[in-house]
Amino acid sequence: MDPEAAKLMGKLIGAGIACIGMGGAGVGVGVIFGNYLSGALRNPAAAASQFSNLIFGFAVTEAMGIFSLVIAFLLLYAV
């Protein structure tokens, strides 16, 4: 195999594998919003006060997925 082609192949496969990490972030964000929703349904009065915490947790969790996306970009474009 041509080494350049092998490198390209490796990069693309690696980028694809890195994107698997975003699934974890998806699970995490789902847990956060799901728990927020179930908590909000139990106690709707307290829901509004926790909205900023929800957004904060969402952002922090989502950052993990973004990191793997960044790794994918690095592999695709910068390696």
């Binding site: 950052a63 973004i66 990191f67 996306l69 960044v70």
Partner: peptide, 13 residues
């Protein structure tokens, strides 16, 4: 790192 990558990654993606 996370502070900058979060913003950048979201916008870029």
């Amino acid at each position: 790192v996370s502070h900058s990558l979060r913003l950048w990654g979201n916008v870029l993606a």
